[in-house]
Structure formats: C-alpha cells, structure tokens
C-alpha cells in the first residue's frame, strides 16, 4: 500500500463524515449493518466457531437487534473488544451497542455516560478449585493464589471479599480466558475466579470437568446487559425493547417454532401488539411493524436463546436459576408491551 491509498481512504472517510452524525438508529439503517461489540472469545456468550461464525448468548442479542432494525439477523458486524477497548469503542461510535458481558455499575452508568438498557443475564462472581484441594468454602482460601481474568469488576470484588473476611491471597491477573485456564490447570494458581457463568463455560472445555468444583459462594452481583451511549434515547429504546420483546415472547409462549402462526393473529392482545398485528408499537419505535417478530425469529425467544447457547443441554450447562422468568421465580421480567 502506498501513501496515496491511505490518503484516499482518509478522504473517503471524511466524505462519509458528511452523511453521518445523525441518530444512531438512522446511521444503522443507512449503513445496513449493525456494529456490535462483543468479547474476543468466551464460549457460550460470544465466540467464533471453526467457520468464523460468531455464536453465543450475547451474539444472539446483537442478531435480534439487527433483525428488528434491519430485518436481517446476519446484518451484524461483530467487533471484538477487550476489557480495555470496549468503552472507548462505544463512546467513540465505533460500535453501536456493546453486548459483552458487561456489569451494570453506578460509575459506568453515571461517570462513563453509558445507558444500560436492561439485564440479559444475572451473574455473580464465583470460584473454581480442583476437587483434590478439598476446599468447600471460599473462606478456606487463606493464602491461596488466585487467577483472575482482568477487565471486569472481578479484581475489585475479589479484593473486597478477602478484605472483609480478613484473609490473605495472592492475585494473578491474566488477560485472556485461555491463558487463565492454562495457568489454573498447570497448578500455577489454586483458584480461578470470574463470573460464575464464565467459570461454567470454562470448566466445560476441560479434559476432565468433573475434577473441578465451583464453590458455593457468589461474592458479587453482576447484572450483565447490553449498553449504548448516553444521550441517544431513540436508539436506547430500540435496543431496550428488543431485549424486552425476547423476554416477553418467552413469557407469552411465543417461540421461533410457532411465531409464524401467532403472527397471523391470536386472541391474546399483548401477543398481537408484540408481533405488530395490533397497535402501532413499531412505528412509535421508528422501525417496521413486525420488528419484534423478526427479532424473535432470528434466534428464538429469551428462553430458546438461553437453552441453545448456555443452557443445561449444552456443554456449559447453566441452570436458569436467577435467570428464570419472574413467573418461575426468577428475576427476568419485562415491562408490558402496551
């Protein structure tokens, strides 16, 4: 490449600037692609498979939003981000939304000026230890060496937990999950700590998953959810209500299998409103009337996405637990579509 192409690219970028700078929703429509920030690879949540296709729980949220806005679940550019780059990528407009198991905290919301549109997974930080250590509680870990995957709130929770229990530990911060796993398996640390869902996902890839146990203590609240920039409320609404549509669909029994017959019209007015056969919810949101239908057909409702990517039938094998519908005693609850 010579200088000229580089300047040419800059000029083209400069020209593109002229047409951009409207709302994110219009940008996405004009671009025909949704730029969605995901992690660099966590099996079950977002990881490319052998063919380079991104799959996972967070990825499905991106696909649902793309389907709702653009009508095409594959019109997504997945931008891999690290713990370090994710907030800049979002703040600078490189990505339209971030679905990268990011914990909703006060300072991220208020100080860093992001809007968390909801919670798609209620997580908490847990510990994994080899069975042979015979540890049954995190409080027995005095003096242990702890591998931490950096980039989330993990370090802070860990410091707080050990401080409040007045026990000592030695932290080993590690950038990627794969390297953390390597050190843990080689015995360079006694304990591996990250979000409980991540621990389960990691353990699923082990040669002998049965040799490792997750300790009962969950030391933090980690509500993970997609987030967008502050100040663009129209776009925030689109992402928020797409997530809610997935949740409501499960609550109302709308699945990817029966959605086409339900879209023909049902006796339940809320289903009709959701699927756009009644009312003008899509128009209010600035998208097509059948937006929610497209979003749900993309990968199924919340429950289907959960089961397919991280549920008990997958190697990751997470139970619904807190993430069951509120009607089943969980915390997943969507405001009504009305």
């Amino acid at each position: 490449m010579k200088k000229s192409v580089f300047f040419g690219a800059l000029t083209v970028a400069g020209l593109a600037a002229g047409v951009a700078a409207a709302g994110t929703l219009d940008d996405v429509k004009a671009r025909g692609k949704l730029n969605c920030g995901v992690t660099t690879g966590l099996v079950g949540f977002a990881a490319p498979d052998a063919n380079g296709e991104w799959n996972g729980f967070d990825v499905s949220v991106c696909r649902a939003v793309a389907a709702a806005v653009l009508g095409d679940a594959s019109a997504v550019e997945f931008v891999p981000t690290t713990g370090k780059t994710r907030f800049t990528a979002l703040a600078s407009g490189e990505i339209d939304m971030l679905a990268r198991n990011t914990t909703w905290t006060f300072s991220r919301d208020v100080d860093l000026k992001f809007t968390f549109v909801g919670v798609n997974y209620y997580d908490g930080q847990g510990f994994m230890v080899p069975k042979e250590l015979g540890v049954s509680s995190a409080k027995d870990l005095d003096g242990a060496t702890v591998c931490i995957q950096t980039g989330t709130t993990t370090e802070l929770n860990l410091a707080d937990f050990f401080r409040s229990n007045n026990i000592s530990y030695e932290p080993v911060p590690i950038e990627t999950n794969a390297e953390a796993q390597q050190q843990y398996l080689a015995g360079a640390c006694d304990v591996y700590t990250t979000d409980a869902s991540g621990l389960a996902a990691t353990r699923a890839t082990f040669e002998a998953p049965g040799d490792h146990v997750l300790l009962p203590e969950i030391i933090s609240k980690e509500p993970l959810g997609p987030l967008v920039r502050h100040g663009d409320n129209e776009w925030g609404d689109v992402v928020r209500w797409t997530l809610n549509a997935l949740i409501t669909a499960e609550e109302l029994g709308v699945t990817s299998a029966n959605i086409s017959e339900m879209a023909a019209g049902t006796n339940n007015p809320e289903i009709n409103r959701l699927l756009g056969t009644e009312g003008t919810l899509g128009e209010m949101l600035g998208v097509d009337a059948d937006w929610a239908m497209k979003a749900i057909s993309a990968g199924g409702n919340y429950g289907e996405i959960f089961e397919k990517n991280i549920g008990e039938s997958t190697p990751i094998g997470l139970a619904r637990g807190l993430n069951a519908q509120w009607t089943d005693g969980g915390l997943i609850y969507s405001p009504p579509f009305r």
Binding site: T40, G41, L42, V43, A47, P48, D49, A50, P80, T176, N177, A178, E179, Q182, A204, T205, P315
Partner: peptide, 8 residues
C-alpha cells in the same frame, strides 16, 4: 491466543 485456544 484467542479463538483457537479458547475453542472447545
């Protein structure tokens, strides 16, 4: 370091 080592 990423996709290959992280794959199952």
């Amino acid at each position: 370091r990423g996709p290959i080592l992280a794959s199952t």
